[in-house]
Design a protein around this nucleic acid. Structure first.
Length: 528
RNA sequence: UCCGCCUUAGCUCAGUUUGGUAGAGCAGCUGACUGUUAAUCAGCGGGUCGCUGGUUCGAGCCCAGCAGGCGGAGCCA
């Protein structure tokens, strides 16, 4: 596992600032070139919109020769020619390609320019020209090269001009977006996220911002992180301690004192959400088509390449719909996202194909063009039993499908995405709708090669009596409002959860989910 | 949480079998050369061998514990 950081990229945030009317071009220029260190006034000079004269590398490479441009970015490499000039490859994250800047020795700060190395930040003004060299159509003949930020020790700059392992790059997560791999991932991840919103908006869905802090510990998807102000806020605790302890000395709560959680911020136990589903259902049963898209937290002690403690989940929920409608939505949704990625990121995807996974483009194209294979759980069991494969875990109706089984179905049997529906009710959550056969529920998993389960969803139980039969008394009390929905205009509805990072893995061909999110949170590691 | 593997220069690794205080490639630096583009060639500098303890005259190497990383499993998205 390695990548080529030589052409690293960073997506820069263009927080465009309006130029104040009094700032003439001369004034701005003077402020920029005058100072070596970046004062606040310098920064206000550098943040300008592209339309106001600033150019991204992307726009320069698409532009016409002879144009005067100003571009800025980070040096990927510098090669000095004794012919009296240097080639500086810079990247600003706006696209995969670097921009080649040609700096002539006649430039007043040429001594400084020949000492540029990977990681240095520069602002260049110059003229776009046809490039006589191979490897790029256009380049910039520099009129000025202003070194904004130096690299203090080139030998220890973490992103050397060579291959690095992904494991190593995770230890320098603050600089890995400068590599070509993580720059491409950042751009593709962004486009996926934007495409998710575009898809739902275009199809009449309403984005619902479900809470991140929840009081419900029965969302049903794994271990919860506790949210509390107790224990961390020692001052507040100490203030309360004397009265709470009464005259009984330090420590233990006595019979008369309230439970500890009642002294907590919300007056009860609270957690980080593991799913927005329960909270989005009320909006589904009002707005008809809704979705959540936000961070999700699971405190499972999971140490795999497919699990994060903090990840982003997309959860559409549709009313007047059954499991078949939901599967149709999942398929159409994924195809739409994949199409947009291929259309908008040919350079990044070509890189993933050449350096990460040779089949990645072909795989997405095949998904777009073919229909997802759909299997009843019972069919899947039969296929596995008849496969002739030797599995570590037995295949038997009533048992959940193991990773090896799912992998066989999607990688060997279907050779593409496969939707498995109608699982045994005893292995699925209480809110999934009971089927008429009495032994299955309308649950659905979408499996894809290499990643495994990318989508999990179900039709929800809309009948109060059937729902009550699957809830304990404690859950009924906690989720009284959820039960209310089944009393007031209940309708068949369905939804699924899709992990954004798993989608990023599938689209990019990357293998470890820790490389699909800028700052991964996993057990024993919340660095950065 | 369970099973397995790994931790030596800025990075990637060899050195562990047969204990005797360390090597290569890349990166960096210097120079040569060149419209170069993973440039090429020559030279130079660079290491408390993850941490703690043990065995030994002597430990990168053997033993134990711990920490971290990776792969797989479970949980799931």
């Amino acid at each position: 596992m390695s990548c080529w950081p030589r052409r690293a990229t960073t997506r820069s945030a263009w927080l465009g600032r309006r130029r104040t009317p009094g700032h003439s071009e001369a004034k701005r220029r003077g402020r920029l070139w005058g100072a070596t260190g970046a004062s606040c006034s310098d920064v206000s000079r550098w943040f300008t919109l592209p339309a106001m004269g600033r150019h991204s590398v992307r726009s320069v490479l698409q532009g016409t020769s002879g144009t005067e441009v100003e571009v800025s970015g980070w040096v990927k490499s510098r090669r000095t020619s004794r012919g009296g000039f240097s080639f500086i490859a810079i990247n600003d994250g706006s696209c995969f390609a670097d921009l080649q800047v040609v700096a002539d020795q006649a430039l007043p700060n040429y001594d400084e320019i020949v000492e540029l190395g990977a990681g240095c930040a520069v602002v260049v003004t110059g003229t776009v020209a046809e490039s006589p060299g191979k490897g790029q159509d256009r380049e910039v003949q520099a009129g000025e090269v202003h070194v904004v930020g130096h690299v203090e020790d080139p030998e220890t700059y973490p992103i050397a001009k060579k291959r690095h392992t992904f494991e190593y790059l995770r230890t320098v997560a603050h600089l890995r977006p400068r590599t070509n791999t993580f720059g491409a991932i950042a751009r593709v991840r962004n486009t996926i996220a934007q495409a998710v919103h575009r898809y739902f908006d275009a199809n009449g869905f309403v984005w619902v911002n479900t809470p991140i802090i929840t009081a419900s510990d029965c969302e049903g998807a794994g271990e919860l992180f506790r949210v509390t102000t107790l224990g961390t806020n020692h001052a507040a605790q100490d203030q309360e301690a004397p009265s709470a302890a009464g005259g009984a000395g330090a420590g233990g709560s006595r019979g008369g004192s309230p439970p500890l959680e009642q002294k907590d911020f919300f007056g009860r136990d609270t957690f980080l959400t593991v799913s927005g589903q329960l909270n989005v259902e009320p909006y589904c049963l009002s707005m008809s088509k809704v979705y959540t898209f936000g961070p999700t937290f699971r405190a499972e002690n999971s140490n795999t390449s497919r699990h994060l403690a903090e990840f982003w989940m997309i959860e559409p929920e549709i009313a007047f719909a059954d499991l078949g409608d939901l599967a149709d939505l999942a398929e159409d949704f994924l195809k739409s996202i994949f199409s947009e990625i291929l259309r908008r990121h040919p350079d990044d995807m070509a890189f993933f194909r050449d350096r990460i996974d040779p089949s990645v483009i072909e795989r997405l194209a095949n998904v777009i063009e073919s229909e997802f294979v759909r299997l009843e759980y019972g069919e899947a069991v039969d296929i596995l039993a008849a496969s002739g494969e030797t599995f570590d875990f037995p295949v038997e109706w009533g048992r959940d499908l193991q990773s090896e089984h799912e992998r066989y179905l999607t990688e060997q049997h279907a050779r593409g995405p496969v939707v498995v529906v109608n699982y045994p009710k005893d292995i699925k959550a209480f809110y999934m709708r009971a089927n008429d056969d009495g032994r299955t529920v309308a649950a659905m998993d979408v499996l894809v090669p290499g990643v495994g389960e990318i989508i999990g969803g179900s039709q929800r139980e809309e009948r109060l009596d059937a729902l009550d039969g699957r809830m304990t008394d404690a859950v009924k009390e906690e989720l009284w409002w959820y039960r209310d929905l089944r009393r007031y205009g209940s309708v068949p509805h369905a939804g699924f959860g899709l992990g954004l990072e798993r989608l990023v893995l599938y689209v990019t061909g990357m293998e470890n989910i820790r490389d699909a999110i800028p700052y991964p949170r996993v057990p024993n590691n919340a660095s950065f």
